[in-house]
Write a protein that binds this DNA or RNA. Sequence first.
DNA 1: TATTGTTATACTCTATAACTATA
DNA 2: TATAGTTATAGAGTATAACAATA
Lengths: 177, 177
Amino acid sequence: MSDRKFSAKAASPSKSRSRLANPKMRGARPDRGVLNGHLGYFMRRAQVWVFQDFIRTLAPVDIRPAQYSVLVVIGANPGLSQSDISDILAIERARLVRMLDRLDRRGLTLRLPSDRDRRSHAVHLTREGQKLLKQAKMLAAQHEAKLAELFGPANRQIMIEILREFEARSSAAQAPR
Amino acid sequence: MSDRKFSAKAASPSKSRSRLANPKMRGARPDRGVLNGHLGYFMRRAQVWVFQDFIRTLAPVDIRPAQYSVLVVIGANPGLSQSDISDILAIERARLVRMLDRLDRRGLTLRLPSDRDRRSHAVHLTREGQKLLKQAKMLAAQHEAKLAELFGPANRQIMIEILREFEARSSAAQAPR
DNA sequence: TATTGTTATACTCTATAACTATA
DNA sequence: TATAGTTATAGAGTATAACAATA
């Protein structure tokens, strides 16, 4: 039951005098378990760690997680519009514009005119983008192997399954706003 | 085996002509599964959803996740120094300064001089801070109940256990930077 | 009228560096 | 020398609003 503090109350007001002024508290180890019942807290801490490891592992190709996801989606679906990509990855359209500006400048992606809708662009990887994505995928696999090591391969798989199911349910249910 | 694309290759260069120009691709549903093997991707999506729900649920007290974690830690350990809090929650010292500035201005927290080190502050909740934290904890419990509903109570518990174990291992191992 | 890409703004969070006053 | 709190800066990510061109 790591969840026993799920609904723990706040320290009652009468106990809130300084722990340093309180003989019983003096030198006591601070309670690090107060957030144990909060899933979001642990998800956040773990997610930050995972992204930092991803960024470090992919430093040789200078690709960040969001950029990586965009390159992978374009690589698998050349010709998608920017709206399509925004939709699939839940990246704001406005944010994707800036990201593609930068990837374009680096010579990795290309925005061609769409042949069916003159408002939209068909986004592609350049040959260089394809080459870099290949490298990036190898590095990402290294990163993923490290996660398998740290979580344990079974736990990594369980997490992926639970989270994918959650994504389906949470997007089907109601969006939080 | 949701992981079969873990090491999937990029679309080979010869296949990268526009999906719209390619008769076989025309109108095909874009492949949304290309990131299936990437745990970090799903952790991020889920974490964002969870935080948005947290923010929305705690809107009545206008408390964000990071602020909440700080209030909970102070509430349970009155008199901690800012460094202690930074340590426990992995919040940058510089960032915590701004957060406490705001919480102080709102009358929720208090920085008292430490009686053992004139460099440091003993951080406390005001009575109002204690009152608000109580409310916040009730709302956070509602939020957590919603997560239990969406993940399924068993899955929520599994996630917490896996993530807590991961946190212990990843911090014990080597920090990513 | 609605959508696509775009520009602009604001705020949160992360990451640094540097300064001051203490230790 | 090192640490605690602070200030400042820069960048990523998120959330909006508004605009022109096109549907």
